[in-house]
Design a binder for these strands. Structure first.
Length: 759
DNA sequence: CAGCGGTTCATTTTT
DNA sequence: TGAACCGCTG
């Protein structure tokens, strides 16, 4: 009797082939995650491998969390010692651990896209380049590409040679890297590239990890880029027990440097590779699978495989023509309502997929009109909201005061009378004396041209930061968050505004503090650094709530790895899906369309039972109605699998932009009567009760001790995770922590912040 | 220095 | 359609 008895023969082979290199080619829905988790459980429970010798790399934090949970179900607490994470989070961790050996400052900031842009703006200023003559976006793209090709500025300069404009890019790249270092900051690309480089230069450190990690597992190997590939190779060189899992047909991130060769050439890199193919699909109906196979067949650049299934044939695939994007959204909403009713589906079973985030709006509007709950994955991350990012930036500065990009962001946020002119003067002084802006604040009397008023405001800001620095050493995480919120004047600013938007922001900040509390409760050593690191490496997909009764809206990219009984893919139009870019590129290089096709393949294979493909003959783009053409991909689905329909809009009343419903019930408001309120904030954050969130923690302490519903075995409601049962209670007063079992996971929460209610 | 209003420009996809 | 940026005014 083995754990592996639950697997089919190829799955079992993949799970128990533990020595040497192993490539698992896992088709969509073939039980890939199952194999990975059972493999790890097998290693620990049946082979006796200590869990800390295992490293598992996933594509998203969410996938890492799910894998952890599923492994825990099999092996229990042993899961805690396994390293599971994304390449980026693992690299960030490595860099902090080994900062000393690597000769780095462990307190580095991690720059996201907007920080990166701000930094580039500064570099443009330095080099006297205007954003008109050179698009920052393009420059960032080129720099990023160079980094991912492991070309440093020095080599870039050498190789830029005669290509027009390259010389200038080289200059910018050099200055950009220097600026990053001055700010003690790394961008996303750096996290990977730095580790690879440092390992090359510090073999003794690499050797340590090579010895430690006896077993490596890399998921979504088809989407690894060059540095990820190199890092994998470096680490695997020790014990050579490397297991890569992937599907060349689902490679959809080549646009950001993923290299299909990593998987196609795996057997060349490791000549003694064992290869296992998982080709039985357990997810979709036969028709859906057949459609997927037929579509991907059109790609030349693939290893080739054929998924099969024992499932019933299922329904035909709907291919629906609509007049406009609005009609498309109406059709989708009507159909999902009907299908949910007829097939007894939960809203959770339904996904609306699209190529670009911009397409979500119409769907959102129609869902709102119909009163259907929805959740968006992607789009704006919670941690990208202005107020959240501002607060996190204050916190970031407490760790790394040399972070000029961060300092500029918050020095006058909220407004405290420090304008651009003053910052500019401070910057000049800082540059002359090779100081950070923060350090320059200590020499205000030496900064030329500052008037008394500016000096006063700058002093006040400096004092504020020093107070917060002191607070950082004394307070626990959530309390520090509240302190920053209060002392910075941010709370006051929002309170003064008295608008619904400000109220939402206040609630979001309440959520941030609650997150900090959760983090504190969940980690043995909750430091600000690790908190910030986790949050800056999170994606919006990681935030999605699973228990919510809501339809899921997301891009096809975000949908990778997920499955739903009912799936709609909208916008099946040329120049949208495939994108106009891909279409243009295909003129010269027919392969250019293949990544789009793989994306379509990913989309189709998300569907378990029912699949609809929809397109609109006219679509609003850039604010005006444009004619469209059906996507070539629609025609690649064999016609015998398709039920084609045209949805007639009753009258041509859509010419006014927002059309009115055809058979509008007398009692329903028309569009113009609906208050043009912004859609509710995405995700789960809008449900929070403002009154509760702004309570002080010590008021809660008394409350907590009085409340008798917070005892073991009782059921409670958590605003984020829903209903759960208390399994354990730790500590007392304001530091009381509870372990609560929710539907799919056990969470530790801090009572003082968790806003629990009896259930 | 801050806030307003006008203009311009853009849409892939995301760790 | 919108966000984001610029320049003007109070």
């Amino acid at each position: 009797m083995s754990i592996l008895d639950a697997l089919n023969p190829p799955q079992r082979e993949a799970a128990q082939t533990i020595a040497g290199p192993l490539l698992v080619l896992a088709g969509a829905g073939s039980g890939k995650t199952r194999v990975l988790t059972y493999r790890i459980a097998h290693l620990i429970d049946e082979v006796g491998v200590p869990p800390w010798q295992i490293l598992a790399v996933t594509f998203t934090n969410k996938a890492a969390g799910e894998m952890r949970q599923r492994i825990a179900n099999l092996v229990g607490d042993a899961v805690d010692a396994i390293w599971v994470g994304t390449f980026h989070s693992i690299c960030a961790r490595l860099l902090r651990y080994e900062a000393e050996a690597f000769g780095m400052d462990a307190n580095f900031s991690i720059y996201d896209e907007s920080d990166r842009r701000s930094l580039l703006r500064r570099v443009f200023e330095q080099l006297n380049i205007s954003e008109q003559e050179l698009a920052p976006r393009a420059v960032i793209g080129q720099i990023s590409r160079a980094k991912n090709a492991m070309i440093d500025p020095y080599r870039f300069v050498q190789e830029s040679g005669n290509a027009p404009g390259k010389e200038q890019i080289a200059e910018i790249y050099t200055a950009y890297e220097a600026a990053l270092r001055q700010n003690n900051a790394l961008d996303f690309d750096d996290l990977l590239v730095e580790v690879v480089r440092q390992f090359q230069q510090h073999e003794e450190v690499l050797a340590k990890y090579q010895q430690r990690f006896h077993y490596l597992l890399i998921d979504e190997y088809q989407d690894t880029n060059r540095p990820q590939y190199l890092l994998t190779k470096q680490l695997a060189a020790g014990h050579r027990n490397i297991c890569c899992v992937g599907d060349d047909d689902q490679s959809i991130y080549q646009f950001r440097g993923a290299d299909l060769r990593n998987i196609l050439d795996f057997e060349r890199d490791y000549p003694d590779t064992a290869t296992v193919r998982l080709e039985q699909n357990y997810r979709s109906t036969a028709r859906i699978l057949e459609a997927a196979n037929a579509v991907i067949e059109n790609n030349r650049d693939r290893k080739g495989k054929n998924l099969w299934t024992e499932s019933a044939s299922g329904e035909l695939i709907g291919l629906i023509e609509c007049d406009t994007d609005r009609a498309e959204a109406r059709f989708v909403v009507e159909t999902l309502k009907r299908q949910a009713r007829e097939n007894n589906l939960s809203l959770r079973d339904i996904a609306l997929l699209y190529r670009t985030n911009a397409q979500s709006r119409t769907f959102e509007e129609e869902l709102q009109r119909a009163g259907i709950n929805y959740a968006i994955v992607g789009g704006i991350r919670f941690y990208d909201r202005k107020e959240i990012k501002d607060l996190l930036t204050y916190l970031r500065l407490l760790i790394n005061p040399a972070d000029d990009v961060g300092l500029r962001r918050i020095i006058n946020e909220p407004k405290r009378g420090i304008g651009d002119a003053s910052v500019q003067r401070l910057q000049v002084y800082a540059d002359q004396h090779s100081l950070s802006l923060f350090a320059a604040l200590d020499h205000l009397d030496e900064v030329p041209n500052l008037n008394a008023r500016a000096v006063k405001h700058l002093q006040a800001f400096r004092d504020l930061m020093h107070q917060l620095l002191a607070a950082h050493n004394e307070l626990d995480l959530p309390t520090l968050g509240e302190e920053v919120y209060e002392r910075s004047g941010y709370r006051q600013m929002l309170a003064d505004e008295r608008s619904p938007e400000a109220e939402t922001r206040e609630q979001n900040i309440g959520q941030l503090v609650a997150d900090m509390a959760e983090f504190a409760a969940d980690h043995d050593e909750p430091t600000l650094t690790t908190f910030l690191e986790e949050k800056s490496l999170m994606t919006s997909g990681d935030e999605a709530e699973e228990n919510a009764e809501a339809v899921t809206l997301m891009t096809l990219h975000s949908a990778k790895g997920l499955e739903f009984p009912l799936v709609f893919i909208g916008g099946m139009e040329e120049n949208l899906f495939p994108t106009s870019r891909a279409v243009d590129e295909a003129q010269e290089n027919p392969q250019a369309i293949e990544e789009e096709r793989r994306l379509f393949y990913v989309g189709i294979t998300r569907a378990q039972q029912l699949l609809y493909l929809t397109y609109a003959c006219q679509r609003y783009t850039y604010g005006s109605l444009r004619e469209t053409e059906i996507s070539r991909f629609a025609g690649e689905v064999p016609s015998e699998l398709v039920d084609m329909q045209r949805i007639e809009s009753a009258s041509a009343n859509h010419s006014r932009g927002r059309s009115t419903p055809r058979n509008r019930p007398a009692f329903a408001p028309s569009d113009s009567e609906i208050p043009k309120k912004k859609p509710p904030p995405q995700g789960v954050h809008y449900e929070m009760d403002a009154d509760i969130s702004t309570q002080q923690s010590n008021e809660f302490a008394d409350f907590v001790d009085q409340e008798d519903f917070l005892t073991v075995d009782r059921w409670v409601m958590h605003p984020q995770w829903g209903r759960g049962q208390i399994v354990k209670r730790e500590g007392s007063g304001s530091s009381t922590k509870l372990h609560i079992r929710f539907k799919s996971t056990v969470k530790k929460v801090m009572v003082a912040y968790a806003q629990l209610e009896p259930a």
